[in-house]
Computed example of a mutant assay.
Amino acid sequence: MAEFLSLHDAVARYVQDGATVAMEGFTHLIPFAAGHEVIRQKKRDLTLIRMTPDIIYDQMIGAGCAKR
C-alpha cells in the first residue's frame, strides 16, 4: 500500500544533509515547492543534479543548501 506524506514530512524523511538530490520537471512541472521546502528545512551539503538549469537550483545554492 502506498504511503502518502506531506511535502514537509517527505523532505524531512528522505532528504538528509549530504544527500544527492535530483528534482526534475520541465516548464510547468518544475518542483518549486519541493525546492523551497528543502530551503525552509535548511538542508545542507547537498549534491544537486539537474539535466536542465532552473532558477530553483539557483535559489537552493544561494540559500546554502549545495556542497561547495
Rank of each mutant, 00 (worst) to 15 (best):
A2N: 11
C65W: 10
I49Y: 00
Q41H: 00
Q59F: 09
H8A: 12
R68F: 04
A63R: 09
K42F: 03
R44F: 04
R44P: 06
S6F: 13
L48M: 04
G25E: 02
V15M: 01
Y14L: 12
Y57D: 06
T47W: 02
F32W: 15
L7K: 14
E24H: 11
A63T: 08
E3K: 15
A22Y: 10
M60L: 08
A22H: 10
K43Y: 01
D54I: 14
S6Y: 03
Q41Y: 07
D17N: 12
G64M: 05
I55Q: 10
C65R: 07
S6H: 05
A34K: 03
T52W: 05
P53E: 09
P31G: 04
T27K: 14
T47G: 01
A34R: 05
I30F: 01
L29I: 10
D9F: 13
L46M: 01
C65F: 07
T20E: 02
G35Q: 10
T27V: 08
D9E: 15
I49K: 07
I30K: 10
H36K: 12
F26L: 02
I49E: 00
G62Y: 05
Q16S: 14
I61N: 05
I49P: 04
R50Y: 04
I56S: 07
R44C: 03
T20V: 08
Y57E: 00
H36Q: 07
F32Y: 13
E24A: 07
P31T: 06
L7T: 14
L46R: 06
K42V: 00
H36I: 06
S6D: 08
M51F: 11
I61L: 12
T47Q: 01
F4Y: 13
A2R: 15
Y14V: 12
D45T: 06
M23I: 12
D9V: 15
H36D: 00
F32G: 11
A33Q: 09
K43W: 00
L46Q: 04
A34W: 05
T47K: 01
G64S: 01
D17C: 09
D9Y: 09
E3H: 14
I30T: 05
I30S: 06
M60F: 13
K42M: 05
M1Y: 12
H8N: 02
Q59L: 13
G18Y: 03
M60D: 08
F4C: 14
Y14F: 15
G62S: 11
R68Q: 10
Q59N: 08
A22Q: 09
R13L: 15
I49D: 02
I55Y: 06
